[in-house]
Simulated assay, not measured.
Amino acid sequence: MYDAIILAGGENSEHLSKFSSQSYEAMIEIAGKPMVTFVADALAASPQVDRIFIMGPIPQLQKCRFPDNAVLLEGGCTLLETIQLGMKALGHENKVLVVTADIPLLTPNAIADFFTQCAQVEADLYYPIVSKEINNKFYPSSKRTYVRFKDGTYTGGNIFLVNPKIVPQCLLVAERLINNRKNPFKLCCILGWGFVLQFFLGTLSLTKVKERVATLLGITGAVVQSPYPELGIDVDKPSDLELVRTTFSFRS
């Protein structure tokens, strides 16, 4: 089994604040519940998940109803500081699942498939991607950031399986990658100008990117092609919020 960390400390963006007065993104209401509770419930319903560490503003999170195996922890001033604090709280160095609080469509089946694919290869970091075709099939109105590779066109997911031992050595480069995750061109610039050229020519392969990121971070990485678009549909703009709220209205 794996422990999980939910990153719930992000402040509400300027765009989303027009649709929700909540100070923190994780607390934005969807179908009558704070967004973060859907993520926690999906993790709690997953047989492979043990403890759930929810990291963010304690006073706000205490107002939520979370599963019994959830532990609330105050987050750091930055995303990476929060991840560091979460890793220290684990009390072990086994692989841990890191999840953002803004993917309320997450399901236990999506989590189970991710774990199943991760178990097929040994790595320090596992990262999911979803093809544009699959995403458009299930959520045609979803507006995602896609990257065109030689192998296909993909968007990134928002869950990661991480070996805690690698976190200290990865912080500086990881921060640059995370901060530019919505900008494929800037990501290619971080990887090197050769990648920029291949990006524009459409000859960039997933394997080359994986190998380059692993070299930059000094780790072994694995890319998981998930059939579940719910891993990547994060709420960071008004159209995302509308999509998620509409989806839940159809489910109820």
Rank of each mutant, 00 (worst) to 15 (best):
P128C: 01
R144W: 00
V130M: 13
K165T: 04
D113P: 04
Y126K: 01
S141K: 13
K165M: 06
N183M: 11
N136R: 12
Q117L: 11
E175S: 09
L125E: 01
F160D: 00
G194I: 11
S131C: 06
L161M: 09
T107N: 11
C170Y: 00
N179C: 09
N163S: 15
I190D: 06
I166N: 10
V147Y: 09
R144H: 08
E133Y: 00
L191D: 09
V147E: 11
T107P: 08
Y154R: 06
S141T: 14
Y127S: 15
N158I: 02
P140Q: 08
F138A: 11
L172G: 08
E133L: 08
F138I: 11
C118S: 05
K143F: 00
K186I: 13
I111V: 11
G152V: 08
F185Y: 10
L172H: 12
D151M: 04
Q117A: 11
F200N: 05
I134D: 14
R181W: 00
T145K: 14
K150C: 12
V196R: 06
K132F: 05
G156H: 04
A123I: 04
N158R: 10
A112C: 02
F195S: 15
C189L: 12
I134N: 09
C118L: 03
G157H: 07
Q198M: 15
G194R: 13
F160E: 07
S142T: 00
T116Y: 09
F199A: 05
F185R: 08
Y126N: 06
N109G: 11
N158F: 02
Y126A: 09
T155L: 09
N179L: 10
R144A: 15
T107F: 02
F195M: 11
P168Y: 04
Q198P: 03
L197F: 13
K137C: 07
V121A: 07
A174V: 01
K150Q: 14
E133I: 12
I178E: 02
I111W: 01
V173Q: 15
C188A: 15
I178W: 11
A110N: 04
A110W: 00
L105D: 02
A174Q: 10
I159M: 15
N158P: 00
K186M: 08
F195K: 13
Y127F: 13
G152H: 02
N158W: 00
R144M: 15
I159R: 07
V147P: 00
I166R: 13
F160M: 13
F114D: 01
L171F: 12
T107I: 07
A123Q: 09
P128G: 05
L106M: 10
K182Q: 13
V162R: 15
I111K: 01
D124T: 06
A174F: 10
V162D: 05
K150S: 12
C188Y: 01
I178Y: 14
C188K: 14
N163K: 14
K137D: 03
S131A: 04
P184D: 12
N163Y: 04
L197H: 07
L172D: 12
L125D: 03
I134W: 02
G194E: 03
C189F: 02
Q169I: 07
